[in-house]
């Protein structure tokens, strides 16, 4: 099984740290990693990261994290940067941003940074919009681990359990990612699947959220960015000269 971690927080200005983290990911059994990058990142830096990943036997996926303050800002960000990155995630800090992100087909991942109930907008309406646009709901396990390290996990797990049930009910794909910024935060895919047991995912659902769902997002995005892509369901198959 091919495992993907779509949120590996590699620091692109510290290549030594990046090397260590990427090597650890490869050692733990991942084959594809998504690295959040700044929209202003230089092409050479991305090439360097790609090379480091290739040396470790990993496929690098470029990711952009957008944290807009309004729906308009989100639309501007998507218009400007969507084509430069393979995966686009949106940190939904307000309800209007969450709704806009859920209905926009250019958004791949919906993320919620806080476990505070007033800042999580993944409800049935959000799930319905997301299921129509094929955006996935991302669960960042570094955030889960750090939040219940400092306080009780009761609220975190009950909230996640409810959101996972809503997502499953509406057919919204779930993506589990590490969110790790140092090797000691990384775990094996099977260990993440075991952690997902705490918020109601069985082993097969958890494995799907670690392999098939993120893999499908990357594949869809790459096929959209390929030269023969015209529009959803339409692809250029010939050269246009009758051949």
């Amino acid at each position: 099984m091919k495992f993907t971690d779509l949120h590996l927080c590699v620091s692109w200005d510290n290549l030594e740290q990046a090397k260590r983290l990427i090597a650890k990911s490869a050692e733990l059994g991942y084959s594809q990693i998504g690295v959040p990058l700044a929209h202003s990142i230089r092409e050479e830096t991305v090439d360097q990261l790609r090379q480091i990943s290739a040396e470790a036997g990993l496929d690098l996926v470029t990711r952009l994290d957008l944290a807009p303050r309004s729906a308009g800002e989100l639309l501007t960000g998507l218009r400007r940067f969507r084509r430069k990155f393979e995966v686009v995630s949106v940190f939904c800090n307000s309800k209007s941003v969450a709704r806009q992100a859920a209905k926009d087909r250019r958004v791949d991942l919906l993320c919620f940074r806080s476990f505070d109930s007033s800042k999580r907008f993944f409800d049935r309406a959000e799930a319905e919009l997301a299921s129509a646009s094929s955006a996935a709901f991302e669960i960042d396990l570094a955030q889960v681990l750090s939040s219940f390290e400092s306080k009780s996990g009761v609220g975190v797990f009950s909230r996640l359990r409810r959101e996972v049930a809503i997502a499953s009910g509406f057919g919204v794909p779930l993506v589990i990612s590490s969110g790790a910024s140092e090797p000691l935060f990384l775990r094996r895919p099977r260990d993440y699947a075991a952690l997902a047991f705490l918020f109601g995912l069985d082993e097969s659902q958890a494995k799907r959220a670690l392999s098939f769902n993120p893999g499908a997002i990357v594949e869809r995005s790459r096929s959209k960015q390929s030269e023969d892509y015209v529009m959803p369901g339409v692809r250029l198959v010939g050269g246009g000269r009758g051949d």
């Binding site: 681990l145 390290e149 260990d191 075991a194 952690l195 047991f197 705490l198």
Partner: peptide, 11 residues
């Protein structure tokens, strides 16, 4: 499953 989850939660 309980033990695996508990072990994975150690930070």
């Amino acid at each position: 499953p309980m033990v695996r989850a508990a072990v994975a939660s150690i930070t």
